[in-house]
Amino acid sequence: MELHLKRSPPPVPVTVNGVVIPAAAIAAEAQNHPVPKGRPGWAWGAAARALALREVLLQEAKACRIAPAPMELVAGQWETEEESLIRQLLESVIVPPAANEMRLRSIYENAPDRFRGPSLFEAAHILFAAPPGDATARATAQARAAKVLMELRSAPHRFAALAADHSDCPSRTNGGHLGQLASGDTVTEFETALIGMEEGAISEEPVESRYGFHLIRLDARALGEVLPFAAVLPRLREAQEKTDWVRASRAYVEQLAARAHVTGIDLAEAPWTEVKKTA
C-alpha cells in the first residue's frame, strides 16, 4: 500500500515588477521588526513589506533618472546611495502645504498648558533597576516595587529608610532624594508622573521607565509659566510641517505601490511604515 504525502506548494517569491527580493535579505531585515506576542511570522511579513516598498521607491527613482548624492547625516556618517535616492525622490515630488497659522493658534489656545516654560520639582525615588530588554528582570523588579509600595502605603514616613534598604540608585544614601529637578532632567515617563502628582504624594503605582520601576515622592513643584503664542509658533509650525510631510509621503508611496506588480506579499495587509523625513 503506497502512502501519498500531500506536499505544501513552494512559497511564492517576493518580487516587485519582476525584481526578486532575496529570502536572505528578508530574514536579515526581520531582525529589525520585533514580533508582537502571539503573532509568529509577523516579523517576516513586516520585513518583506518594508523591502518591497523600498524596491518600489528605488525603481521610481531610477525611472526619474535621479543620481545618488549621499548627504552627511552627522559628522563622519553618510547616507547610503539607496537612502540618498529615496530621499531625493521624495524631496522632488512631495511639497506639503504651508502651515496654517490660524490652525496652529487654535491648537495653542485649546491646550495652553502644553506650552509651558521649564518646571522645577523637588522629588525622591526608590529605584528597582532592570534592563529594558530583560522581561524576567523587569517582572522581578516590578514585583519588588509593588511589595515595597504596600509598606509605604501603611507607613509613608519610612520612605527614606526603605530607599536605603531597597533602592538601586546612588540616591539611596540620601533617603532617595534627587534634589531639584528641572523639565528635561529626567526621562519622559518619570517627568510625566511628577506632573500628574500632588505635592507630598507618593506615586499610586510603580512608574516604569527604561531604567526599571520607580516609587516616587513629590515634595514640591513649581510649574513653568505658559509661554506666549509667538514663542511656541516655530515649534508648532515645525511639528505641523513634519506631520503634513509624513501624510503626503504615505499617500505618494501608496500610489506607487498600487501601480507596481508585487508577488509573494500583500502590501495592503498591514499599516504602512511611515517614511521619515530627513532633517
Score class of each variant (00 low, 15 high):
201 A>M: 02
25 A>V: 05
28 A>E: 15
258 A>G: 12
139 A>G: 15
259 R>D: 09
236 L>V: 11
29 E>C: 11
232 V>M: 01
215 L>P: 03
181 L>Q: 13
9 P>A: 09
154 S>M: 04
78 W>Q: 08
219 D>V: 02
160 A>E: 12
170 P>H: 03
65 R>Y: 04
121 F>N: 05
112 P>K: 08
112 P>Q: 05
29 E>Y: 04
262 V>N: 08
121 F>Q: 00
146 A>K: 12
135 A>M: 13
63 A>R: 15
1 M>V: 05
229 F>D: 09
108 Y>M: 08
222 A>E: 10
264 G>M: 01
72 E>I: 11
233 L>I: 10
237 R>Y: 05
59 Q>H: 06
4 H>Q: 11
241 E>R: 01
91 E>C: 05
224 G>E: 00
37 K>E: 10
114 R>E: 13
75 A>P: 11
2 E>T: 08
2 E>R: 12
241 E>F: 13
47 A>N: 07
78 W>S: 11
96 P>G: 04
30 A>N: 13
204 E>A: 15
228 P>S: 00
36 P>M: 00
199 E>V: 10
61 A>C: 02
211 Y>D: 11
194 L>I: 02
93 V>S: 04
242 K>G: 09
146 A>P: 08
153 R>I: 01
116 R>C: 08
216 I>K: 04
218 L>D: 04
104 L>V: 10
52 A>H: 07
75 A>Y: 04
148 V>P: 03
264 G>W: 10
227 L>G: 06
90 L>T: 03
3 L>R: 14
200 G>F: 04
227 L>C: 09
231 A>P: 05
175 G>E: 03
103 R>A: 15
133 G>A: 15
184 G>C: 07
193 A>V: 07
9 P>F: 07
108 Y>L: 02
96 P>F: 08
140 T>E: 15
9 P>V: 09
113 D>P: 00
161 A>Y: 02
22 P>G: 00
110 N>L: 10
83 E>Y: 10
55 E>I: 02
223 L>M: 07
103 R>S: 13
275 V>S: 07
206 P>T: 04
115 F>T: 04
72 E>Q: 15
208 E>K: 04
70 P>S: 10
111 A>H: 14
219 D>T: 12
70 P>K: 03
168 D>M: 10
88 Q>G: 07
206 P>G: 04
111 A>E: 08
82 E>R: 06
40 P>Y: 03
205 E>V: 11
172 R>H: 06
71 M>E: 12
241 E>C: 10
189 E>A: 14
159 F>L: 02
126 I>T: 06
20 V>W: 02
232 V>C: 09
13 P>E: 12
206 P>Y: 01
55 E>Q: 10
190 F>D: 01
37 K>T: 13
10 P>V: 09
